[in-house]
């Protein structure tokens, strides 16, 4: 089948570009860039999201309102707009220009920070009230209770949802293409602009690559969900206070 042969040829000629971009003759790119961007992005977004979730649940308006406002704004505005804002504001704030990579990273941290904070918030609110009450009754402070009792449980229960968000982050990195970040989609477009005659093949390869990565991670998420559900299935006391941490999937389909 000529189609498969063409795919093989394209892959054979360009696999390095797809993998690591034009490194070492340029910045690190390709799928490695995509993964680094995603991992660092969500890694930095995570502590931010915990802080924002706690701010949203805080009894102090001064903390609650800005956090809630930020989450609503990020949820209501396209990722591209956030990219444009960050692209414009970061040089203004820092005083010098930044690379597309840095811009994309900052965007992802803010964007995913807001979405992740909703996941964390759902996890905290899904725990039975009795947990916080028991901790407070024993004399723990609010923050102490959060640290020792609430967050360990909430974050563990929400691991599948957080992994889902990681998959979303990988998908969101594709928008770096618009500001010339040399990630996988950019690499694919480079190849297409060189070849010009086989656009379908190139983009087919691109789609399949993302599919493989995201699908595997989604399978991992589902396995994790099953494992956590079976671990948490304990003996519930009679007045059914079951802690069903609803798996909130806030995948933003970008």
């Amino acid at each position: 089948m000529p189609f498969i042969l063409d795919l093989y040829t394209i892959l054979h000629d360009n696999w390095l570009l797809l993998l690591i971009g034009s490194y070492p003759n340029g910045p690190l790119g390709g799928i490695v860039c995509t993964l680094i961007l995603s991992v660092v992005g969500i890694g930095l977004a995570f502590p931010l999201s915990v802080l924002m979730a706690m701010a949203r649940l805080s009894p102090w308006r001064l903390l609650r309102w800005p956090a809630t406002a930020l989450v609503y704004v990020v949820r209501g505005v396209p990722l591209l707009m956030v990219i444009l804002w960050v692209y414009f504001l970061v040089p203004v704030l820092i005083g010098r220009n930044v690379s597309g990579f840095t811009t994309m990273l900052c965007t992802l941290v803010i964007y995913e920070g807001a979405y992740l904070s909703e996941v964390v918030r759902a996890g905290i609110q899904a725990l039975p009230r009795g947990q916080m009450e028991a901790a407070r009754a024993l004399g723990h402070s609010h923050l102490g209770a959060m640290w020792s009792v609430i967050l360990p449980q909430a974050l563990y229960n929400m691991l599948p949802s957080m992994l889902s968000q990681f998959v979303s982050t990988i998908k969101e990195t594709t928008l770096g293409y618009v500001i010339n970040v040399q990630e996988l989609t950019f690499a694919a477009n480079q190849i297409n602009n060189q070849l010009l005659t086989k656009p379908f093949h190139v983009f087919f390869i691109l789609a399949v690559s993302y599919f493989v990565v995201c699908w595997s991670l989604t399978q991992l998420t589902q396995w994790l969900e099953r494992r956590i559900a079976s671990k948490r299935r304990g003996i519930a006391p009679k007045p059914s206070t079951k802690a069903r941490a609803a798996s909130v999937t806030l995948e933003s389909p970008t």
């Binding site: 009795g130 947990q131 009450e133 009754a137 449980q153 563990y156 006391p237």
Partner: peptide
């Protein structure tokens, strides 16, 4: 300093 025992035990499952 006030010992409290709940109806639904509220042990920390983790």
């Amino acid at each position: 300093r006030i010992g409290f025992v709940f109806q639904s035990f509220n042990l920390f499952p983790h």
